[in-house]
Simulated assay, not measured.
Amino acid sequence: MTTRWLTPEEQRAWRAYLAASLLLEDAIDRQLQQDAGMPHLYYSILANLSDAPEHRLRMTDLAERSKITRSRLTYAVTRLEKDGLVRREGCPSDRRGSIAALTEAGVAVLERTAPGHVETVRAAVFDHLSEEQVGQLEEISTVIARALHGDGARPASEDLPWRRRSAPSCS
């Protein structure tokens, strides 16, 4: 098999992407640590629960939405539970399954932290892009995510983080 090396243009684009994504993640993490005492991952878990019906999701679905392994999610939810921001509930249709639910304290943390988070994202990304570039960013990101997730033309990888360990289903 012949290695398909990156062209100079692709190499520049790749390095620019890496630099931007690492710097952005650092900026978001710093803001969330300062405002809420939590990393971006924990905030994302709370936000995903906030967007869900009744602020509840099966742990397997929450892992998929958060794009992390189930074991990493379990660790994060345990920490969020200790802080009173999330609670685990049993699954009515499967005793082995569990559901993560956002508590009132979790909602309050999101309400208090969201304005600073949005301002950080806006200042780091959207204030520097034209309307056309925002559309291009969405298009490019969607294409990459579909390719990695499985786009219908080929199946999604079984090595996706949330699929790395079997878990019981729960409705």
Rank of each mutant, 00 (worst) to 15 (best):
D29G: 12
L32E: 10
Q31E: 15
T60G: 05
R88I: 05
R58G: 09
D51F: 02
R96N: 08
R72A: 11
Q31D: 13
T78A: 10
R15M: 12
D35N: 11
L41Q: 11
D29A: 10
R95K: 11
K82E: 14
R70F: 08
Y75R: 14
D29E: 13
T74A: 14
G90I: 07
S44C: 10
R72P: 04
L73W: 03
Y75A: 11
L23F: 07
D29N: 15
R15Y: 07
R95N: 05
L57G: 00
T60H: 05
S71L: 10
D29L: 05
Y43L: 14
L49I: 01
G90N: 13
P39W: 06
E89I: 02
Y42N: 12
S93Y: 03
A36E: 05
L62G: 00
A20Y: 07
E54S: 10
L46K: 02
S93L: 05
L62N: 00
K82N: 06
V77T: 14
L46N: 01
S50Y: 08
L22R: 13
L23W: 08
A19M: 08
S71A: 08
M38Y: 05
D51S: 13
Y75D: 12
R79K: 14
R70K: 12
R15G: 13
P39V: 09
L24I: 06
I45L: 08
I28P: 04
L62F: 01
R56H: 02
D26K: 15
K67Q: 12
D29Y: 06
A36F: 04
T60P: 00
L18V: 14
L62V: 00
E81K: 12
D94L: 05
L46A: 02
Y42H: 15
A20T: 11
G90W: 04
M38D: 06
T60Q: 06
L23R: 14
R79C: 04
M59D: 06
N48P: 03
L32M: 11
R88W: 03
H55P: 03
R87N: 03
Q33R: 15
R72M: 07
E25K: 09
R72T: 14
Y17K: 12
Q33H: 13
R65V: 01
P92G: 07
R56Y: 00
L46C: 02
L23G: 14
L46E: 00
L41Y: 08
Y43S: 08
L85F: 01
L46T: 00
T69A: 09
Q34L: 12
G90H: 10
D29I: 06
M38V: 11
K82P: 02
E25V: 08
A20N: 09
D61V: 04
A36L: 06
A16C: 09
S21F: 07
V86C: 00
Y17C: 08
R88H: 04
E64K: 04
A19Y: 07
S71E: 13
L32S: 10
L73Q: 03
R87E: 14
R88E: 09
K82I: 04
L18A: 10
